[in-house]
Amino acid sequence: MSVIAFAKNWNGKFKNSTFELVSYTRNLASQLNTQLIVVSIGEVKEEELKSLGKYGAERIISVNDPQMNTLTSRVYAQVISKLAEIEGADTIVMSDNESGKAIAPRISVKMKAGMASAVLELPVSMNPFVVKKGVFSGKAFEHVQIDSPVKVITIAKNCFGFIENQVDVSIEEFSPNLDAALFKIQVLEEEKQTNKVNLADADIVVSAGRGMRSPDNWGVVEELADALGAATACSRPVSDEGWRGHEEHVGQTGKVIAPNLYFAAGISGAIQHVAGISRSKCIVAINTDPEAPIFGVADYGIVGDVMEVLPKLTEAVRNSK
């Protein structure tokens, strides 16, 4: 018995979500009285792997293969399942992000392991194994019991935080013998916006809605985001109108996010929008209409015109530094 945590890297680097995953699984393994094995796939330098020791990763198995630098879900699932079999792991955990969503379901099928996704805290009970997850896009929670001997879960961002627990790290290399025929997808190009804070990872998000009145008014949103080191986002009508790209749409059918601080500027707060932001730690609403539903879910509110309030706020943030 052991717990496997799949630590995804991005160009050889780990992120806060990886540290949260290691903290979570370290705690889970202790509660299950079993060993934690952290698995890394793709080229990652030893120093970077060792950084996971700060959060309690004693044993790391690294598949340091450049062929696997790009996510191919079929290949990653095969590697992790193989390791789980060799190590007799019965609980496999990964972050609920684009790679976890692609790999975990495949492992579930491969190992006939029941799966729960976007789990919000440590299991509610270990025996039977019951976890709590969000359903109806944040409008409710469900307790799901996994009955199979092997269990696969993905954990939601900001569900646990990271807890320092420095340990000595042992690193083992693993070379799976994979069938080349598995690599049936080929990445032709990659485009990245390097100057912008990535919405899914952002600790602070400045989001704006139709209350901005025109796409030409977005300068004040970007300035506040810049002052805060925040990512920008928008409501659905704004992305539907083409004022902003759909990758910025936050809400039930767009991105569901959980930053520490979320600014909703000129967003009325439709139920579908709230579903996408309800796990934010702190919500600030700015709206001309004091009756706007967004104030019902916000922690702090300002009644006023976004075009006047946002520049003042930017100035206040800059002055406070």
Partner: peptide
Amino acid sequence: MLTRSVKFELPKAKGACKMIDAGHVE
């Protein structure tokens, strides 16, 4: 069947929103 639903919960009601005057954003 590998999993089963045990029960559902609704989120706890949020506390009141603290209002700040638009003239004092600091």
